[in-house]
Design a binder for these strands. Sequence first.
DNA 1: AAGTTAGGTGACCATTTGGTCACCTGTCAA
DNA 2: TTGACAGGTGACCAAATGGTCACCTAACTT
Lengths: 105, 105
Amino acid sequence: MTDDDRVFKALADPSRRFLLDLLFARDGRTLTELESELEMTRFGVAKHLRVLEEAGLVVVRRSGREKLHFLNPIPIRQIHDRWIDKFTEQHVTALIDLKQSLEEQ
Amino acid sequence: MTDDDRVFKALADPSRRFLLDLLFARDGRTLTELESELEMTRFGVAKHLRVLEEAGLVVVRRSGREKLHFLNPIPIRQIHDRWIDKFTEQHVTALIDLKQSLEEQ
DNA sequence: AAGTTAGGTGACCATTTGGTCACCTGTCAA
DNA sequence: TTGACAGGTGACCAAATGGTCACCTAACTT
């Protein structure tokens, strides 16, 4: 399995994306803390975190018996750069900003 | 299935990512033209293109009996914006540019 | 009109994936 | 040192996924 395959497979599951959302909101959480936010057993969450870690989307730091989880944005940026060149980026961000401001009315 | 679920599921397959790569290099191709680039039957490719289309990653235009496929970068940008805020973006792009220039030596 | 070309449909099968469970290791606190 | 707490492992099962095939419709060509 290639690196980018691991990243995209990891992102394919809604529970794993939710875990990334949680870490985006606040970094450095333990498995047990994250587990309380999902309707799933600890084993399920641990499995998902492992997939995210092997994909490099989450990096961990051990502290005693705890394992702290952090979001790594670099693979996300690389997805972006794969299909959006510098030129297109300007158009796309402008379009999205426009869409946003229209929806806010 | 939610919109973003469709996008991430669509991106989870290497053949579909390769199709996006092909369309990123050159837009407006037909099924038959794309098929010739993959080691897979037409049916397989058609199925993949349909998944990409339903995810909004590819948009199509009919022209007679041909169906032309175009890459839509907007969902990709939205993935980026979900986990990378404006502040982090600067750091991340700087890091990636640095990594690039180091690898070129 | 007849043959060819572009693409679509539904069934089918092998493999992968998400989630749970019984059980285990290591670490902190009284 | 004895619990309690944080996390890991391997087996297992139901469901989803990737790919192929037989067969079909619609459009261009001569």
